[in-house]
Amino acid sequence: MAFFDRLTERATRRLAQTTSRRSLLTALGSALVGAGAVPLLPVARASGTGGSGGYPGVAPQTTGNVQDPGDPTSCDYWRYCAIDGFLCSCCGGSQNACPPGTEMSPITWIGTCQNPADGRSYIISYNDCCGKTSCSRCLCNRNEADRPMVRPQANNDTNWCLGTESTVYTCSTAVILGVALED
């Protein structure tokens, strides 16, 4: 047993003589601070910027068509003149299409918006996408020509997820149906 006593004592003394009592804290502290300087996991760099719509994590988009100007992730995009809801463009869909896993409502509210590219009014159908929980990104509420609930066909506070399998609202699109006549 004396052998073990001597061994332990010698090892302990050597450790005490060659290292400072706080060296463990020093080493651990360096490791912690150093780890922060070098990212260990991928970082969502888009979250810093945001598109012209200003919603964090959503990069700007374009239609690629000069006749259809603007950023579909921004509430200012011309087709959204009467929209009230989350933009499907920010939710994995587009201004014309629903995100995967959702169903486009065939029942819609329809209005007109003026296209700044040619100054003409276009008929826009705000088809809601339904079937997943609300997207909650890029909320827009412009309401031009919105009418109260007593005019249900022109009211955008209604849940338009009708005629779909699920009535759960996910997000809204703005589909062009045609050109409106000048009065």
Binding site: P106, I107, I123
Partner: peptide, 13 residues
């Protein structure tokens, strides 16, 4: 047709 689209089509399709 425009009046149909704006006032009826949303629900009647």
């Amino acid at each position: 047709q425009l009046n149909w689209i704006l006032n009826c089509q949303g629900c009647h399709q």
